[in-house]
Nucleic acid binder design. Structure first.
Lengths: 255, 255
DNA sequence: CGGACTCTTGATTGCAGTCAACTAAAGTGG
DNA sequence: CCACTTTAGTTGACTGCAATCAAGAGTCCG
């Protein structure tokens, strides 16, 4: 409580990266200092639009954001949900041209960071570098799991799987109390995430409710039995476990 | 023709990276020298299996590979198709645990590369670093477009879009003559890529044939009019144009 | 030249979309 | 503080895209 507000608000990023590598106090300080320019958007606002040439990438500090693409005839697909601590692009890359837009589900606070600064931080400390690569890999694993869900899972499975994924991700940054957490996502949003119509999302949620697996009302989701929902949704938590808990040394020796 | 066979075979990687940054002869030499350990798998063989702890990542040199996940009840989803010049993982990250498997559609030749070696190459030259980040961003953009297809496009659109994507990617490495290229993908494979049954893939292909948009037989795909298929499939080639052609300086100034 | 895929085609089923109406909240403004 | 509007959630009826089941034709290959 003696830290400045930015450091407090930065917390989710550092907190998450601790799962990727053992970080020293200096490492965490270096990561914190990446947060210099902080901005806010209101719920339903946009952070960046498709086609933009951003001068920095965003790091979500507070609130839920998402990346999405809008197609012809009004169709819309949400590509990924971005939680506090999430970088919106791979840490070292500055897109010269956005292929998707970034929006806000809730009011969002985010930092604008330059990839150069992050790369510099990575160069300054092997632990930071390792943690950043771990984070990128985990993020890509989530996006790939999304492909699997959209391609081969039923509506109910997609929903259950998504709930499990969020539960896991939120617990990494301390935003889930067991299976319960704030869930500021409308059923229309859920449809755009899961490739379903909102009507069908509604019916699928009711199915999960009827089976006693979840409660969802007033922006709060409760998974009554996490293990049970995971089993029912074929959710494998290992898919994220690049490392189990805050870890230090490991390293392939090359060949 | 005075180069060694590895350098010749490495070509697709360098060739592609030229689109990401202006590379000097030394840069290309450094990239070529990443290819030390070369392996082969036969068609339908596996390169890595889910759950493995690889000691290196793979760089496809020749042939078509793919990453996939197998689900309970025999369902299967191909996450991405990997062409010559494609790295199977983000260049700096060594997964401690594979969340998906890597298979071969055709006989595949690939190099085993350590992320440490690639990172070292990136550190040695800003152009290499830039090119590698560009490549990673492009790869992620393709994977994200896959999410959009699976979530919101019809069967025919998915097919057409996928054909256009391949045409573009193959042309970058000189493997497409205009709209025509070898296409070693069975309809069952296509189903696993596009989240469809093979029967429905068959019918969708017939639709495209009937409209005179494509020919597909004996492992060869011909897109009769690339622009027309792009329009019909809502394919935007710009989605890959992080840069248009072999490019040199550009750089955001941070903030 | 048989066996094993791969591709086709037909018949049927079913999951999820669309359309539409109604309820319930949540704002908004006078 | 309450009509008024807007947004979110729910339910029902109907439609349709794509899955499944099944069988036959075409190819490739040892």
């Amino acid at each position: 409580m003696t830290r400045t507000s930015w450091e407090t608000v930065l917390h989710p990023f550092v907190r998450k990266l601790r799962f990727g590598a053992r970080l020293t106090a200096e490492d965490e300080e270096a990561l914190s200092s990446l947060t210099k320019v902080v901005r806010r958007v209101h719920a339903k606002g946009d952070i960046v639009l498709e086609g933009d040439a951003p001068r920095s990438i965003a790091l979500v500090l507070d609130g839920w954001a998402y990346s999405y693409r809008e197609l012809e005839n009004g169709r819309r697909q949400i590509i990924s949900v971005l939680l506090p601590g999430d970088l919106t692009e791979p840490f070292g890359a500055l897109p010269t041209f956005m292929a998707h837009s970034l929006g806000a589900l809730t009011p969002v606070t985010f930092a604008q960071v330059s990839p150069d600064a992050i790369r510099a931080a990575a160069r300054s400390s092997p632990s930071i570098e390792e943690a950043l690569w771990w984070d990128l890999l985990a993020f890509m694993t989530i996006e790939r799991e999304h492909v699997v869900s959209l391609g081969r899972r039923s509506a109910v499975e997609r929903l259950g799987h998504f709930f499990c994924e969020l539960q896991l991700r939120l617990s990494l940054i301390g935003l889930a109390e067991d299976g319960a957490f704030d869930f500021p996502v409308t059923q229309t949003n859920l449809g755009d995430i899961l490739g379903l119509s909102s009507v069908h999302v509604n019916r699928s949620i009711q199915y999960l409710r009827a089976r006693g697996l979840v409660s969802l009302r007033a922006g709060r989701l409760i998974i009554h039995d996490v293990e049970e929902l995971r089993a029912a949704s074929y959710f494998d938590p290992a898919f994220l476990k690049t490392s189990e808990a805050p870890v230090g040394d490991r390293h392939g020796a090359g060949f």
